[in-house]
Design a protein around this nucleic acid. Structure first.
Length: 563
RNA sequence: GUCGCAAUAGCUCAGCUGGAUAGAGCAACGGUCUUCUAAACCGUAGGUCGAGGGUUCGAACCUCUCUUGCGACACCA
């Protein structure tokens, strides 16, 4: 039973058609605290038409209102506060969770439509930094949220595996590198060469000529260049995969930039056919004046392609391969303008999925307020942060739960969970000035806090083994349980909102809310007491465990049964 | 310079799209482990919601102006 609907119906009757159901429904709000009721109707809007004080209107409505089905309806000033029937509501909510299990909250809004997600996208031969973490975990979470809403996400790791930097890398490797070193520590060695190249080319501009030549060879399919490129790509990918494994993120495709090499000519041809390409200052551009945007540069004056050329090819490929209902790009906010241009060009080309192309931007990670950069050495290695966090989790376990089994596995779940949850907890767009100590927090509103609440729930359930928890008769009247029950009932709406806004933080905040309410509940109420409501309380604990685990799963965070 | 994003407690952030006394966490201070794991719970203190106008019954939220910070502005990605 939809209580909002029930409140609306009661009000429609009492108001005798003065407001439509929709008008009433949109005015209903949730009071800040449960002592003011569960849904409230403010009467201000009626004051004008009725020429009466809102307080009086609230009184009048209350008198006419059919209050059956509610615990009570209270008039507080200009508000009508509705209190739900706790026994009925808790029974309904708990039974719904128990019956559905992990699929509680699942809907089919997406109708299984394909949604390619451009995400993670690290650059070959460069280490993954905290910036890549954001794109990876936000993209991964959005994919899970989409699935929960009936979409079919396709996670595409759009690797930065092509470009002039490979000319530089090959040049540097041929000059200073050797196979053995690279095999031992691939990315660090490759970065070392790359950095050295940039140091030395200041005095030796001939290095740049050589690099250009190597890239030209690479583009023309030169065997040696291609073999080196492929090798660099492979060893880099192996290291990336180690991190993805730790994060628990998998991809459906790894179609990097190189994948589109043979698809660029068609893009240019299509643009020409549509007469969209115009010459400007020696370069080929698409004019975007009607979108109030600067022209998009498609071909450089030397005829070479650019990033956007590749991205058009990518969009075209995805359009033809998947017929997407949405097209998502989880890329930093600094590229907002760029994505407006990309979308505009695709719309000019009448690519069907262009109108559903969404850039999902996220805030920048800085150190001391400054942007990260591989070349300058201002970088935070993701692998290091994850390791620090896992180490700290190990220490916490040694201190707090030394007899725990599978310590290592749990430390990993908790340590990684802290980092991932920490990243997803706040609104995407917030920029983050990186401070390691801020990341390594396990207390308060953190991943471990949520994990801990569920571990405690599991602990109770283990001790209650043998008590029959049935999907019936789960009426809980304990007011201490009320906020938890309401939180559980909100999950399906949370799943929808997170999807509509592409905001994992909606789920993360929700998980905190459930955990917090549950912590309060069991701190106050002893669950394992032999009385008539014991099965109902265990049903509540089971439901909490299920919903927290599922919320964390949507965030890509694991939920250990013990910690 | 133009455009975009932001500004809420000492710090990090919420604030359900315009409603009730602006809420959490951290840090500080005080309390709670012979009872389901103290990664927890309870309490105290902490605010001119960057500034100023406008819209209306009502604004942290909408609008305008300004200030400050960050970012983007065609041959990088």
């Amino acid at each position: 039973m939809d209580y909002k609907q029930q409140v609306t119906n009661a009000l429609v009757k009492a108001l005798d058609g003065q407001l439509t159901a929709d008008e009433i429904s949109s005015k209903l709000e949730r009071p800040k605290t449960s002592d003011k009721g569960d849904l409230a109707f403010p009467t201000f809007t009626l004051a004008k038409t009725l020429h009466k004080a809102p307080q009086q209107i609230a009184q009048d409505i209350a008198e006419k209102l059919d209050q059956t089905g509610f615990e009570k309806v209270a008039v507080v000033g200009p508000y009508l506060n509705f209190f739900f029937d706790k026994a009925a509501y808790s029974e309904e909510t708990l039974n719904a969770v128990l019956a559905a299990g992990a699929s509680y909250g699942q809907n089919n809004d997406g109708n299984q439509g394909n949604v390619p997600i451009d995400m993670s996208s690290p650059n070959i031969a460069k280490p993954m930094s905290m910036g890549h973490l954001r794109s990876t975990v936000i993209g991964n979470s959005i994919a899970e949220i989409l699935k929960k809403n009936g979409y079919h996400p396709i996670k595409d790791n759009h690797l930065g595996d092509w470009g002039t930097q490979f000319g530089k890398l090959i040049t540097a490797y041929k000059l200073w590198g050797n196979e053995e070193d690279v095999k031992k520590d691939p990315i660090n060695k490759l970065v070392e060469y790359y950095v050295r190249f940039h140091k030395e080319d200041v005095d030796k501009p001939e290095l740049d000529d050589e690099a250009r030549e190597w890239f030209r060879k690479l583009e023309n399919g030169d065997q040696e260049a291609h073999d080196l490129w492929q090798w660099f790509r492979e060893v880099s990918l192996q290291e990336f995969n180690d991190i993805y494994k730790v994060l628990g993120v998998e991809f459906d495709t790894y179609n990097g930039e190189a994948f589109y090499n043979d698809k660029l000519a068609e893009v240019v041809q299509l643009l020409k056919d549509d007469h969209l390409l115009v010459e400007s200052q020696g370069a080929e551009v698409v004019d975007l004046e009607k979108y109030d945007l600067n022209p998009a540069l498609i071909l450089k004056s030397d005829g070479a392609s650019l990033y956007i050329t590749r991205d058009i090819a990518t969009a075209l490929y995805r359009d033809r391969t998947y017929h997407p209902v949405k097209n998502l790009y989880v890329v930093g906010s600094e590229q907002m303008y760029y994505f407006k241009q990309l979308k505009a060009v695709l719309e000019e080309m009448k690519v069907p999925s262009a109108k559903d192309l969404h850039h999902i931007p996220f805030g920048l990670i800085t150190v001391d307020g400054k942007k990260l950069s591989t070349r300058s050495g201002r970088i935070i290695l993701l692998a290091d942060v994850l390791k620090d966090s896992i180490d700290l989790a190990e220490k916490e376990i040694a201190e707090k739960n030394p007899t725990l089994k599978d310590k290592e596995a749990v430390a990993k779940q908790v340590g990684v969970g802290a980092i991932v949850f920490g990243d997803l907890k706040n609104e995407r767009m917030n920029s983050i000035d990186f401070v390691l100590a801020d990341q390594l927090k396990f207390e308060g509103e953190t991943g471990p806090y949520v994990q801990y609440a569920r571990a405690r729930a599991q602990s109770i359930l283990r001790k209650a083994d043998g008590v029959d928890v049935q999907a019936a008769g789960n009426e809980i009247t304990d007011p201490e349980a009320w906020d938890t029950i309401k939180a559980l009932a909100d999950f399906p709406a949370v799943v929808k909102m997170a999807c509509a806004e592409y905001e994992p933080s909606v789920v993360a905040k929700y998980a905190i809310r459930v955990a917090k309410n549950f912590n309060k509940y069991y701190a106050h109420t002893k669950v394992l007491t032999e009385d008539a409501e014991l099965p109902a309380r265990l049903a509540l604990v089971t439901a909490v465990s299920t919903v927290i685990k599922e919320s964390l799963r949507l965030l890509g965070v694991q939920a250990p049964d013990e910690m």
